[in-house]
Nucleic acid binder design. Structure first.
Lengths: 205, 205, 205, 205
DNA sequence: CATGAATGAGTGTTCATTCAT
DNA sequence: AATGAATGAACACTCATTCAT
């Protein structure tokens, strides 16, 4: 490794680090104020620079949202794919997927909130077509999983599959709105209790 | 009833009707595009009038959101209060509250979506203080209900009450995002299945 | 005089009375808020009717200003012409003109304020050309009067005539801004004291 | 003085200079068209920039008026205070105050016109409370001065003090409407002749 | 990398005006 | 005579974006 190469790497890494910092800030502001209500200036203020200066790093406000969302989705699918590749039973897969989901929320909370609130709207633009792709793959994954669980005798057969899908999907992801890293309950704690409710319900047995 | 009185009533009713029409349109647009991303002109377009004409009926965009939200919340609490006054067991109360919630979603779908997405943001302004009041009352009602259910031996005691509260709250209300009146499943159908999942879980027994 | 003619006259008189009432109201509002800052609705509110209803009586906001100003100017010139026709000395003429001016202020206070504040701006439009005509005639009248007074040995000759003209003009008319009918000093009282100051100054002799 | 400090000063001075330029332009337009009838775009046009660009420099149209008026009033009172501190006789003080007033008109002509025409209206808003404060202090100063002049035997005692105050106040300030820098008569020339008229009147002696 | 100044399209809102009733 | 509802142009102001420095 030549010093020159080290310098270049150092610079590139520094730049990437700055990008990541700015994106984290932007995601936080987008999540807390809403994408549309967030001005570029607010993001810049939160980052301690002037509005125009963000354009040195990003092409547009949309580009920031794009990078925030695609980073989150890539990470999410990497985790899901690991689980799905493990060849577990439907019940165990569901467990792992839910656990993985709360870990993703832990790592990408503001991005998840942004996704939750704005993906429907953003997906109308060509640039965000992948949001729809992801959503469709997500839906297929869950419907397959639920169907398999019924076949394997693990899940009840008297419930509407679409409804069950939406039930779990909504419940898990909307939790990003209140989840706080380092709070009383860890992501894994929440996953465990949510799973208990999904599977067994809240009724005393 | 004299003709004159009928005329007056007709006029007043017509005016109220127009307001309600415009509010319904506005709620629809706010819900589908987001409050902040919705321009007053978009609302007016959807209503078939010009942007400025809305101001004959309403003081501001905020005033429209205000009326939409307070109408919905008033109706919701009227329903809840009827249930709570009936003196049912915790389990039956939960059932009725969930059923009532889906009926409110049926009647006020766009308002519920608006509430879901924007109340946090809107509540920072004095005018929408009642949003916070309602949220607090809502939270108390649920925590009381869940505590009582545990005492009555109806609900499991091994779950975190705050978490259960959020679980049910989120799951019910977020359904407003996809619920469609006149779809395959009625509001009561959805309530019934959601209750089954809340209480018994999706696991085969 | 036939009954029919009396009816017609009665109606016409009533209509003219309503016009005059509305114009008085409009003048009051124009004077107190400024022509441009006064909305048609404010005038209508002050008159106890709705904004659109004013258009039954007047063609436009400008038409109201027009009628207010021309009525005032006509009355003012009628008074001035009476004075000028009397063939008095310059000194006595000045006295009478000043007295007459304060009487016009008494009768048309809001119109005078409107004239003071807006004539410059309004006079750019064709419709208000008469404002410039009046101003020019007014200026000529005063310069003649002052010149004659110097010739007659009544007025000092060491002062700039233009300056003296502006001095008196401004001082008299700007009083409309604070003059109140029925106040401690009548219009004639003020005229007398102003004349004392114009002629003799405030210095003890 | 280090180069760095010089740079910083240069930049700050340049910014202040731009502000002052824009304010001078705005004052000119406000004075000639009236505050309310002046659109922000007209101001921007006169400054050779676009409407929105003004908001980089100022928070609002009101903020411009605020800065214009407070700058003028601060300068005026600084001048008055110098005169008042000199301990002159009432007569000499009056002379100096009038001279100073015309110098202020010379330096702040459009601001004075703006003040004249709009202060009554603007002063209703909290932000412009200082307009009322200044007006009150101004009134007290004059009434004190006139009373002292009578006591010192310099001014006539047969005139109404309030009336004399208004007479002088109006006459001096309304001159801002026609005063032109570099015209036939300098500010000091006008002051001298106005003083002659105030003190001795226009009557030949 | 960042700033300061500007752009220009668009936003919520106002308002003079119209007109069927 | 007056109302109620609407129009459409204009307004103050915002904001994503650009660019010379």
């Amino acid at each position: 490794m030549s010093p020159r190469r080290r310098d270049t790497e150092g610079t590139a890494a520094a730049r990437a680090g700055r990008r990541a910092e700015l994106l984290a800030t932007a995601a936080e502001v987008f999540a807390s104020q809403g994408y549309s209500a967030t001005t570029v200036r607010k993001v810049a203020d939160a980052a301690g620079i002037l509005g125009g200066s963000l354009y040195y790093h990003f092409d547009s406000k949309e580009a920031m949202a794009d990078e925030i969302l695609s980073t989150f989705l890539d990470d999410m699918w990497a985790g899901y794919d690991r689980v799905l590749a493990a060849g577990l039973s439907a019940r165990d897969t569901l467990e792992q997927i839910v656990v993985e989901s709360f870990r993703v929320i832990d790592r990408h909370r503001p991005a998840v909130v942004l996704y939750q609130n704005e993906s429907k709207h953003l997906a109308t633009s060509e640039r965000f077509r992948y949001l729809n792709d992801s959503r469709r793959r997500f839906e297929e994954m869950w419907l397959d999983l639920l169907r398999r669980g019924v076949e394997e005798g693990a899940f009840r057969s008297d419930l509407d599959p679409d409804l069950v899908y939406r039930y779990i999907r909504d419940t898990v992801w909307v939790a990003a709105n209140w989840y706080k890293r380092g709070g009383r309950l860890s992501a894994d704690d929440i996953a465990k209790q949510y799973l208990a409710m999904f599977l067994e319900g809240i009724q005393a047995s």
